[in-house]
Simulated scan of single mutants.
Amino acid sequence: MKAEVATNYRTAAPTPRATKRTISMSKAVAFFILSLVFNSAGNVLTLVTSAKIHPSFLGAAYWSAAEANIGTAFHWNLFWAFLIIGFLTAALNAVLIHHWNWKRIAGNMIFMVPFSALIQVFQDFFDGKYPALFRGLPVANSFGMDLFYVVLNFIGVAFIAVAISIYQRVNLVLHPADDLMQILRFRYFKGNATKAMWASYIPPTILAIIAIIVTQQFSNFGLGTLFAFVAQGSITGIADKWVFPKLKHQALDVGKDISTEEG
């Protein structure tokens, strides 16, 4: 069946109505691995650069900030924080598409295990725990270093957005948060990536509030978080068109009644 699309001018990308796989499995896996590395590296860049500036004003990407804070509140390391919140988000996705799909949830968890592991690896790398390879990012001690970390933080956000664009289009397995964003985008927001991204930030906002109540601290949120909130969805929409532009959404499934009009 030939895919039908409606142009989404706000995100500069087509909105799929129904899609099938048009690329080989080897290409899909290669795209997926690339996006997984970009996503985990980008998430850690936002966390580490935020921690290197004192007093902290930078903040991490929105989901990363909330998950890191929940991890602190309940004494989980990043691996377990990302994994547990990922499973809960996968359950929310099942509610939104009105269908409990064990295959889909298993895919979410398959994504979460290497992703969470890479998060820990990149955090150790940027913190200098592999000195033979890299001695770690130093603490900022000048305006120039502060500015450099701001730029690096924003680059991390862009990495995340581009990675989301790639593996959402590949659609082998998805991070539960990005599966949530895709469900919202094509089922509830008529293909608009920006609106869907904003709506997908409701769960991490709730998590952040819980963490603040438990720890009595407000950390990992700041300028970088604001940039992610405002720009990440738009960057994802732009990347749909400009990063691997021939890669179209594969086997899209967001439940019945996929919207085809722009939101």
Rank of each mutant, 00 (worst) to 15 (best):
T7A: 15
I160P: 00
G222W: 03
A6V: 14
Q217V: 00
L137W: 14
F189S: 05
Q250F: 10
I209G: 12
P176V: 02
I160S: 01
V139R: 08
V162R: 00
T205H: 11
Q123S: 11
A66C: 04
L83M: 15
A66V: 02
I166Y: 00
T89P: 11
K103G: 06
I110G: 05
T49A: 09
F31R: 09
H54D: 14
A161T: 06
A60R: 00
I238E: 09
S40L: 12
Q182R: 08
R10D: 13
L174H: 07
A140W: 14
F122E: 02
E261F: 09
F57R: 14
I155S: 04
N39H: 09
Q232R: 08
V157F: 06
W102M: 15
L96Y: 04
I183N: 01
T15A: 13
T15S: 13
Q216T: 12
Q123F: 13
S165I: 05
T7C: 12
V173D: 09
L88K: 05
V157L: 00
A30V: 15
F189N: 06
T194D: 10
Q217F: 13
P16Y: 10
I213V: 15
F57E: 12
I33K: 10
G107N: 11
L92Q: 03
A65W: 01
I85G: 10
G237Q: 01
I235Q: 11
I238P: 04
I160Q: 05
W102F: 12
A61S: 11
L247E: 00
I209D: 14
I212Y: 14
L180A: 04
A60V: 11
N8L: 06
S165P: 05
F134W: 10
M181T: 02
Y149M: 10
A251K: 03
S35R: 05
D124C: 06
A199F: 09
L152C: 00
F82P: 02
F38V: 02
V113A: 07
N192C: 00
L47C: 01
I238C: 06
A94S: 10
A3C: 09
A41D: 02
M145A: 09
A177S: 10
V230F: 14
V139Q: 11
G156K: 02
S26V: 15
G191K: 07
V170N: 00
Q168G: 10
N77K: 04
F74S: 05
N69M: 14
T46G: 05
L172C: 07
W100F: 15
F143K: 01
I84D: 03
V121Q: 03
L96G: 02
W80G: 04
A6M: 11
G156N: 06
W102E: 14
M1H: 14
